[in-house]
């Protein structure tokens, strides 16, 4: 708590509070090094997109922030990753808590094969260690669904299986189910790549609404999406950060030749 306030204070002193900050982050899959000295600063309350060609390490970076990549078992990381001022690579960090603080949305919508209601309450119940009272839970469900603009579509069928919703609704649900445990950061791994253009726009609109309250880091392959739906952009190449600037700046006046080439579609 103390370190939180001090770091926040320090960050505010320098202008912008950081939601995520990595320093000298190196990551290996077995003997293959996927990230090289990655330093990024994700500003609180903004949407930051991570762009770059396939295999450049953007998903790896994203998945190292909530340490979900450690499922693989052969991942080694050095350096620091701070989420809201706490180093999450510290051995004393409890992974279950970290994952509630940094919620993740995956490429393919992955609602659990439970009812819509149970999906929304999954993290909530884990967090409070059991079921809450009926009225509390109803409130949580309604609030989360309203936040992702899904309430009107599903309020009459909350007991229906979540896997039967349309992909767009599923992905919104996957965002909604993170919110009851009040994450500070949302990590999104190409959240729209399985969606059609309509649904993509709906989810992008939603991200735009959620920014401010949540800091969002989104990996995307879609340049147009990065351009219209993010405040800042980080361009990565071969496991390194090449450029980090405001989206408008990056797309209009990229500082590096590689960035310009990638944005213009000369490679990737």
């Amino acid at each position: 708590m103390v370190s939180d306030t001090t770091s926040t204070a320090a960050a505010t002193a320098t202008g912008k509070a950081k939601a995520i900050q990595t320093r000298k982050l190196n990551l290996w899959y077995g003997s293959f090094q996927a990230l090289f000295d990655v330093d990024i600063d994700v500003v609180q309350g903004k949407v930051t997109s991570l762009i770059g060609p396939s295999g450049c390490g953007k998903s790896t970076l994203l998945r190292s922030i909530n340490r979900i990549n450690e499922r693989l078992g052969y991942v080694r990381t050095t350096g620091t990753i701070e989420v809201m001022g706490h180093n999450v690579l510290d051995p004393s960090v409890e992974l279950t808590q970290l994952r509630r603080a940094a919620g993740m949305v995956f490429q393919r919508p992955n609602p659990l094969p439970l009812s819509i209601r149970d999906n929304l309450l999954f993290a909530y119940r884990l967090d409070r260690g059991g079921k809450g009272s009926r009225s509390d839970e109803d409130e949580v469900v309604e609030k989360a669904l309203k936040e992702v603009l899904l309430w009107d579509q599903v309020k009459d069928r909350l007991l229906q299986k979540a896997t039967e919703l349309s992909l767009e609704e599923q992905q919104k649900l996957c965002i909604a189910r993170l919110l009851p445990v009040k994450p500070s950061v949302l990590l999104m791994d190409e959240p729209c790549s399985a969606l059609d253009p309509e649904a993509t726009r709906a989810v992008e609109d939603l991200l735009w609404q959620l920014r401010g309250e949540y800091s969002i880091l989104i990996v995307t392959h879609n340049m147009a999406q990065a351009r219209r739906a993010s405040d800042e952009c980080i361009f990565m190449l071969m496991g390194k950060v090449v450029e980090h600037s405001a989206t408008v700046e990056m797309f209009v006046t990229p500082k590096h030749q590689e960035t310009a080439d990638y944005l213009e579609g000369r490679f990737g």
């Binding site: 979900i68 993740m104 995956f106 992955n110 609602p111 659990l112 094969p113 996957c174 993170l178």
Partner: peptide, 25 residues
């Protein structure tokens, strides 16, 4: 496996994943 990953990313422990997600499905 995406079910397990989803549950793990929401902060479920190994046993919670098995008990609440894997066995029911």
């Amino acid at each position: 496996d995406s079910y397990r990953e989803a549950a793990e990313a929401m902060g479920a422990t190994r046993w919670q994943i098995i008990r609440q997600v894997v066995i029911p499905s």
